[in-house]
């Protein structure tokens, strides 16, 4: 698995400049690397943790902390530090103490092309408990794949209200992940 840092940095910079499509492409571009990293470590430490859970938690962390990357600096060390932090966090929650040398993050298991995507039931239970507006917005955008504008029209609220509800839902999701979802 190659860490194509130059491409990621370019996409992230475009995303920061307001290019939403580039940002979505960035999230998809880093996915194989995050998966390969999480799977490699979980394979070595035991199957107690679902690797895809760690991938999702890392994605949310990268998203919420994207302003901590300085555009003029290489993006690789920044991403590796976040991935490592979330991985250790997840394993520790499951009662495992691990030490992962930073160097290992670069050459992990070869990426399998089989998809390991799966619905996280714990998160779905959490989404059920969100306030109605946030739940509606998440349903429309994440599950039905609608845009902000389409969601606003469907729910008969302003686009600004959709954005606020969505951001709150993401923050709530991050909190649930951090505590180890119930």
């Amino acid at each position: 698995m190659k860490w194509d840092e130059a491409e990621w940095a370019a996409l992230m910079r475009a995303g920061n400049a307001g290019d939403a499509a580039a940002y979505e492409q960035f999230l998809r571009a880093i996915l194989p690397a995050l998966r390969s990293f999480a799977r490699g470590t979980v394979a070595r430490t035991g199957p107690n943790v679902e690797a895809e859970d760690i991938v999702q938690e890392t994605l949310v962390a990268i998203h919420l902390k994207r302003h901590t990357w300085i555009e003029s600096e290489p993006i690789g060390p920044w991403m590796r530090a976040i991935a490592r932090h979330k991985l250790i966090d997840a394993l520790r929650r499951h009662g495992r103490h691990v030490r992962i040398p930073v160097e290992e993050l670069e050459d992990v298991l070869p990426a399998e092309e089989t998809t390991t995507d799966y619905p996280r039931r714990d998160l779905e239970r959490h989404l059920d408990r969100l306030p109605a507006r946030q739940r509606g917005v998440v349903q429309a955008i994440a599950l039905d794949g609608r845009s902000i504008r389409e969601t606003a029209e469907a729910l008969k609220i302003s686009e600004g209200a959709v954005r606020v509800a969505l951001h709150r839902a993401v923050a709530a999701l991050a909190a649930v992940m951090r505590l180890g979802a119930t």
């Binding site: 920061n16 307001g18 939403a20 940002y23 979505e24 999230l27 998809r28 996915l31 895809e52 991938v55 999702q56 994605l59 949310v60 998203h63 919420l64 994207r66 302003h67 995507d117 799966y118 619905p119 996280r120 998160l123 779905e124 989404l127 998440v138 955008i141 994440a142 599950l143 794949g145 845009s147 902000i148 954005r163 606020v164 969505l166 951001h167 839902a169 993401v170 923050a171 999701l173």
Partner: peptide, 20 residues
């Protein structure tokens, strides 16, 4: 929620990019 759905949600969330 699948990773694919999560990415859609994160990509749409353009608010909250904090100040330097």
């Amino acid at each position: 929620m699948s990773t694919e759905q999560l990415i859609r949600m994160l990509a749409a969330d353009r608010t909250g990019r904090a100040a330097a």
